[in-house]
Amino acid sequence: MRKEVPGMPRVRVFEDRAAMGRAAADDVAAELRATLSRQESLRMIFAAAPSQREMLNGLATAEDIDWGRVTAFHMDEYLGLPADAPERFANWLKEAIFDRLPFGEAHLIEPGPDPEATASEYAALLAKAPIDLVCLGIGQNGHLAFNDPPVADLDDPFDVKVVELDRTCRQQQVDDEAFPSIEQVPSHALTLTVPRLLDARRLFCVVPGRLKQPAVQRTLHAPVSAADPATALRTHPDCTLYLDAEAAPRD
């Protein structure tokens, strides 16, 4: 079981989503510049979700970043959707950020006919060098990536795996207007695991909206456990949580 790091994560609260997104984008951009000033390249992981859009829009217009020295990954992908489906996270990220910036490399998860083999191959790509930054969110059920409470393992031995999505997670996709009904949301996905995400040097976690407020409350105050996977953020030594007023904890 991961042990809590006292005082973590840092929490920043803003009046609205726009201010939250600008601040997070400014902080990510500043960290990119600082890291690239002291090392030749940088590796980072992105979440694909509407909650990230304001931050990604800000990051796409950030200046003085040598994106050609940045390698990008993403953290989860549905199984069973056509390659060109707009609901695919890879396609969402292409539109939101990957096609807007000249990354040196961008590795998207392509499940293919053998998702288990894809999981192993993507894990190997991630393991080639340390991950510097992760831009992530928190699900309504407290998930990180697609590590829902029923399948999350805070000490997972795998870096990438196939998981079954729980009903709350699938309903969130409908609430986010990614799918018209829960029946159309895939039941399985590939995801980076909690230890793989938390192995990065720095985490930027962007969480707006009133529907996320209970999850944020648990993240900060519930016992660290797989029952609320996002509580694992409290075990990381360098995590910042960006919230709008609706998502902010009540105490």
Rank of each mutant, 00 (worst) to 15 (best):
V11T: 14
D16E: 09
A19K: 10
G21E: 02
A24K: 07
D26W: 04
A34G: 11
R38H: 09
E40F: 00
E40V: 01
A49S: 15
P50K: 14
R53H: 13
R53K: 14
E63S: 14
D64L: 01
I65F: 00
F73R: 00
G80W: 05
G80T: 06
P82Y: 04
P86W: 05
R88V: 03
F89R: 03
N91K: 08
I97L: 12
L101C: 04
F103P: 00
G104Y: 00
E105M: 01
A106H: 01
H107Y: 08
L108A: 09
E110Q: 10
P111H: 07
G112D: 08
A117R: 10
S120I: 01
A124H: 02
A124G: 03
A127T: 04
A129G: 11
A129V: 04
V134D: 01
G139N: 06
G142R: 02
N147L: 03
D155W: 07
D156A: 08
P157D: 05
F158V: 07
F158G: 06
D159I: 00
V160Q: 04
V163S: 08
V163C: 09
T168Y: 10
Q171H: 15
Q173K: 15
V174T: 14
V174K: 13
S181R: 14
P186F: 13
H188R: 15
H188G: 05
L192C: 12
T193S: 11
V194F: 11
L198D: 02
D199A: 15
R202H: 12
F204D: 04
P208H: 13
R210E: 11
L211Y: 08
K212E: 12
P214Y: 09
A215M: 14
H221E: 14
A222D: 15
A222F: 08
V224L: 15
S225I: 02
D228F: 10
P229C: 06
H236V: 06
D238L: 05
Y242R: 03
L243V: 07
A245D: 05
